[in-house]
């Protein structure tokens, strides 16, 4: 166990959302080289990130379709809109 895991775990998370400064990267690197718990955490949030990007891609390329009822409703609304204009 090491002190400062709270700070390092925050930086490890930030690295997914912003570019860390040079100093921050060194700090993380040194801490991780000495702390197996933070290494595990860093690995795990990496796995989580991969899981979500896999879900994102499988959702968008899946075969889910609009229900017939929704399609019908949208058709009606578009038709009314077109009729209004003409």
């Amino acid at each position: 166990m090491k002190k400062g895991c709270d700070k390092i775990s925050h930086l490890v998370s930030d690295a997914f959302d912003r570019k860390l400064s040079w100093l921050e990267r060194i700090e993380v690197k040194i801490h991780l080289s000495m702390c197996s718990l933070c290494r595990s955490y860093a690995n795990n949030i990496g796995v989580m990130h991969d899981i979500f990007s896999y879900i994102r891609h499988s959702d968008e390329s899946g075969s889910t379709r609009l229900s017939q009822a929704s399609k019908h409703k949208i058709k009606q609304i578009l038709k009314e809109e077109c009729d209004d204009k003409s």
Binding site: M1, K2, K3, G4, C5, D6, K7, L37, C38, R39, S40, Y41, N43, N44, V47, D50, I51, Y54, I55, S58
Partner: peptide, 22 residues
């Protein structure tokens, strides 16, 4: 985290394949 910033519940390394999980 404890007050001095140590993990309270230790993370354990996950070895699972993300795609298989999903």
């Amino acid at each position: 985290f404890s007050e001095s910033g140590e993990w309270q519940t230790n993370p354990r390394t996950w070895h699972d394949n993300p795609e298989q999980c999903c």
